[in-house]
Design a protein around this nucleic acid. Structure first.
Lengths: 213, 213
DNA sequence: ATAATAATTAAACAAACGTTTGTCAAGTTT
DNA sequence: AAACTTGACAAACGTTTGTTTAATTATTAT
């Protein structure tokens, strides 16, 4: 149970904290629990992170660092909208697969009010929206149509994250084996769902336009 | 700030607790905070709910009660798949709109480990899956294809819930006005996205089948 | 009116909380 | 070799946690 690998104490704290935050949520985890799991003295939390919220802050910063890097990597200059979106979804799934716990903590804690992290959250989310807007333009979608983008964009993110959030249910109830084949199919399914979906929306918009004129 | 309406103390506690749980999460809210907001004595929590987790238990029970009722209401015998799914999505959006805080608390707290509620969660989630399976059959989808259903079903739920979860971002950054017109458009957009999406998936499956034979 | 039950209160409880303290050994710099 | 820095520790800090107690008021039934 107790973490005692070759990792440095600071990394052991981070690793233990992430794991516990996923299970119970930030507020429900005590510092003693973390230090016990990480096999470090309790004072090390203040020493390395300036307190408990400092751990969460470090976690969120790490998440956004990796997430924004992934988004930037997901863009290449020459490709069709379909290729671009399929690539983006592929990267997103890979990202959450490789950073499942980090992503879950961020996903769970971000909407919660924690005054000490308010500033950080605003900054990072603004940043992400900026990157996403860039993607949208590059994909040839209509960036003026904020109305629909605010509905569709978050839908895509939620589809990917939800799958990891309900992992235990999928595993126990639906007997899903989370192997490469599964994720390959998952990527294709979500991408097809999303692409056919936005095509359907575009077609509908076109019809409404023609109906009006 | 303090809740002191004509409501009964028990209901005042529930109302205050839901509001606070949405803001900070269950574990981060203290009983004194709840009682102050509800304007009741601290002992009333044990008196009416047998403790703090009892409040969350009552909240989750209320959520599942209303949610399953909504799902049952969403089904009518005679209609096409498209009509059925559009109706279901309409009901889901209406439900989350009318029970936003209740839904957010349930959505946020359900994946977290709270031993005292483990049994309840398993029971209710099993129930929901049962109802959903019934819907799927009635919609003429292939219930054998658990692989895809486990990907698509949760996607639908997450699309609807996500919109309410990031309300504050949509409001502040995208300047969304959450009025009837918005939700009408939201329902149609999500429904079109989802319907076109599953048609695209079905078409792809068909193509793969033909490719193999 | 009186007894019984229900609702509410202030006060106190032990346990757990996050943080800080003072100390010490091991390196590093001067 | 002396001065300083870093990493780690046990112990204790004051505060807050959820819960309980015993007393009191309000309501209902007899």
């Amino acid at each position: 149970m107790a973490e005692n690998s070759a990792l440095e104490p600071k990394q052991r704290i981070l690793k233990a904290a992430i794991s516990l935050f996923v299970q119970k949520g930030f507020a429900a985890v005590g510092v003693r629990e973390i230090t016990k799991e990480a096999n470090v003295n309790i004072a090390m939390i203040s020493y390395y992170f300036e307190g408990k919220v400092g751990i969460l802050k470090a976690i969120l910063e790490e998440f956004f660092e990796r997430y924004s890097q992934m988004l930037r990597d997901a863009v290449t200059e020459e490709e069709t909208t379909e290729e671009g979106i399929r690539r983006l979804i592929g990267h997103m799934v890979d990202f959450v697969r490789e950073n499942t716990e980090l992503a879950i903590v961020a996903y769970n804690e971000l909407p919660l009010d924690l005054p000490e992290l308010a500033e950080l959250k605003v900054e990072k989310i603004t940043q992400m929206i900026g990157i996403m807007s860039g993607l949208i333009k590059r994909f040839g979608l209509d960036p003026e149509d904020i109305y629909h983008l605010g509905m569709i964009g978050p839908s895509l993110i939620s589809m990917v994250f939800m799958n990891f959030r309900i992992r235990s249910i999928l595993k126990n109830v639906f007997k899903v084996k989370f192997d490469d084949a599964y994720y390959k199919e998952f990527k294709e399914t979500i991408a097809t769902l999303f692409l056919s979906g936005i095509q359907g929306i575009a077609a509908k918009k076109q019809m409404q336009k023609r109906g009006k004129t």
